[in-house]
Simulated scan of single mutants.
Amino acid sequence: MKKKYKEEPIINERIKYPRVRLIDVLGTQLGIYSSEEALQLAIQKGLDLVMISDKSEPPVCRIIDYGKYKFAQEKKAKEAKKKQHNASIKEVKMRYKIEEHDYKVRLNQTLRFLQAGDKVKVTVIFRGREIQHLNLAMELLNKMAQDLINIANIQQSPSRDGKNMIMILSPQKIKS
């Protein structure tokens, strides 16, 4: 399978347009030149002629050091990728008649997931005839939501899902 590379910009002799809008190293617009003249200016300065945009008429070209330009673009792409966080859904399961210590453990687990930026699906599991005690499960989920009110938003309020009752929490956006 071939790797997909981002399309490389057109540089130097590969620019086939008769006229181009030229921008120098400092970002100053120099005007409209023929491709040959623009390339000669770039060569005189020991730099490259790089097509920035072919969407306009005439296309925009810039005189820059292509190696440095390419390095800067790759660095920007890496930084953007680092800042990207894909929030996944983590699940915390418990029974409606959970002991206090076990509840605290599940609460801390949920807290860790939320602080990591993940959504949390809190599930209360029923077995057999326990399904009659929906009100107790609802109280338990509401208690958890109340305990996490400062760091979590209820994305989906407690609802019955087969023999389970679920609630989905998402981390609050930090206001800066």
Score class of each variant (00 low, 15 high):
Val122Leu: 08
Ser176Tyr: 06
Ser176Glu: 09
Ile174Phe: 06
Lys3Asn: 11
Asn108Pro: 08
Ala145Thr: 13
Lys104Cys: 12
Gln40Thr: 08
Arg129Asn: 12
Ser34Asn: 05
Lys97Val: 07
Tyr33Lys: 14
Lys173Glu: 10
His85Ser: 15
Asp48Val: 04
Gln132Lys: 15
Ile64Lys: 12
Gln146Asn: 12
Glu100Leu: 13
Leu47Asp: 04
Arg62Gly: 06
Gly27Glu: 10
Ile89Gly: 04
Arg14Lys: 12
Val60Cys: 00
His85Thr: 14
Lys173Tyr: 08
Ala77His: 05
Asn150Trp: 02
Gln40Tyr: 00
Lys81Thr: 09
Gln109His: 11
Lys16Asn: 09
Leu39Met: 07
Lys173Leu: 11
Leu111Asn: 15
Lys121Thr: 08
Val50Asn: 01
Met1Thr: 01
Ile63His: 01
Ala77Arg: 08
Gln132Leu: 12
Met165Cys: 03
Pro18Glu: 03
Tyr17Lys: 15
Arg21Glu: 04
Asp118Lys: 11
Lys119Cys: 14
His101Thr: 12
Val60Asp: 03
Pro58Gly: 14
Leu30Pro: 03
Lys70Ser: 12
Ala80Val: 11
His85Val: 09
Ala42Met: 02
Ile63Asn: 03
Asn153Ile: 08
Arg19Thr: 02
Val25His: 09
Ser170Leu: 07
Gln172Thr: 03
Ile89Lys: 10
Lys81Gln: 13
Tyr17Phe: 11
Leu134Gly: 13
Leu169His: 07
Ala145Glu: 07
Lys78Pro: 05
Thr110Tyr: 12
Asp118Ser: 15
Asp147Lys: 10
Asn153Thr: 07
Ile10Leu: 10
Gln84Tyr: 11
Lys121Gly: 07
Lys104His: 12
Leu134Gln: 09
Ile43Glu: 00
Lys70Asp: 11
Leu141Lys: 02
Gly46Glu: 00
Met94Ser: 14
Lys68Met: 06
Leu140Ser: 06
Asn164Val: 03
Leu47Trp: 01
Met165Val: 05
Arg129Ala: 14
Tyr103Met: 15
Lys175Leu: 10
Asp54Asn: 05
Met1Gln: 06
Tyr33Met: 10
Gln172Arg: 13
Gln146Met: 14
Ile166Lys: 01
Thr110His: 07
Ala38Arg: 07
Ala145Gly: 15
Ile154Leu: 10
Ile89Asn: 10
Ile43Asp: 03
Met51His: 00
Gln132Thr: 06
Gln84Pro: 11
Pro58Tyr: 02
Arg129Pro: 11
Ile154Lys: 03
Lys163Asp: 11
Gly128Val: 09
Asp54Met: 02
Ile43Asn: 01
Ala80Pro: 00
Glu36Ser: 01
Glu37Trp: 05
Glu79Ile: 14
Asn142Lys: 07
Leu30Gln: 09
Arg129Trp: 09
Ile23Ala: 04
Lys2Asn: 01
